[in-house]
């Protein structure tokens, strides 16, 4: 079943205060996300991949074209489409468990479901256990590492049982080792539950290691230049011949300034 669909979507933003110029962030993008897919939106900075995610979440309305969720146009954000933000987004005055309860209470109210605290606590604790943070339930976000905070953000979506997880470079602020650890556990989570995931990244090896489909964007204006489906038995292990060949193929499509570099931005070589 098609969960999310962008049809002929273009998005423009004013670039100056006087509103005399606009930048085209996305130009005529059509893309559909099927249930159970793990889709990576890959591209250099300024290619509109975060804009695409914001449209799917409902934070933005397209300048042109239509974005639908299960066939209905998206009017505003809602808990069906959970988001893990690039920045830390836990409420700092709440403990980890209270953060999850906040999410459960808000989403129950928004969806017209009854909210029952005992079962909500059980659900929150289950979600924390799923991301390996059962022991941190009573801690405040400011006592957690960056990786733990993003795992709580994932647990928040697990607890709300969102239909699709929209993840905006969630691990890009983390060190390399933590990032690949989180990549692995996210991929495991997906393999087990087949949650639909849309994952924005500018890191080629991250995309190759996890996705069931990679969508490559080009920048200025943002367009989709190519897509690859990765089979069940595709060898995702970093450094495997198949993974390396795919990464090379992707790299070949990008401007030469990026070609020696897996990170499409910045100077880190991974």
């Amino acid at each position: 079943m098609t969960l999310l669909e962008l049809s002929h979507v273009s998005q423009a933003f004013f670039t100056d205060r006087k509103r005399t110029r606009a930048m085209v962030a996305l130009h005529d993008v059509s893309l559909s996300i099927e249930e159970g897919e793990f889709v990576s939106l890959l591209g250099p900075s300024g290619c509109g991949k975060t804009v695409t995610l914001s449209l799917m979440a409902g934070f933005l309305q397209p300048t042109e074209g239509q974005v639908t969720f299960k066939g209905h146009p998206i009017a505003k954000p809602d808990p069906h489409r959970g988001v893990v933000f690039q920045e830390y987004s836990l409420m700092p005055w709440l403990t980890v468990r209270q953060n999850l309860l906040f999410a459960l209470r808000s989403s129950a109210k928004a969806l017209g479901h009854p909210f029952e605290k005992t079962s909500a606590i059980r659900r929150a604790d289950e979600a924390l256990a799923q991301v390996g943070l059962a022991h941190a339930a009573d801690r405040r976000p400011n006592t957690l590492s960056g990786g733990m905070r993003q795992r709580v953000a994932i647990a928040r979506l697990l607890a709300m049982d969102s239909d699709v997880f929209l993840m905006d470079e969630p691990f890009s602020a983390l060190d390399e080792q933590t990032r690949s650890e989180l990549d692995r556990s996210l991929f495991e989570l997906w393999r087990r539950d087949r949650k639909t995931i849309v994952f924005v990244t500018h890191n080629i090896s991250e995309a190759v290691a996890m996705s069931s489909r990679i969508v490559l964007f080009s920048s200025s204006p943002g367009r989709i230049i190519d897509q690859w489906r990765l089979d069940e038995d595709f060898d995702r292990t970093p450094g495997s011949p198949a993974a390396r060949a795919l990464a090379d193929q992707i790299r070949a499509l990008l401007p030469s300034t990026f070609d020696s570099n897996d990170e499409l931005e910045g100077a880190t070589i991974t």
Binding site: P77, P79, V83, Y88, M91, S106, K109, A110, R156, M160
Partner: peptide, 24 residues
């Protein structure tokens, strides 16, 4: 991002004001 997160979780305007903006 805190306001966006609350919106994503379905919080109403009043809830965002009372339970996100004022505490923060």
């Amino acid at each position: 991002v805190l306001v966006q997160a609350a919106k994503m979780m379905g919080a109403s305007g009043a809830a965002i004001f009372c339970r996100v903006l004022v505490p923060q």
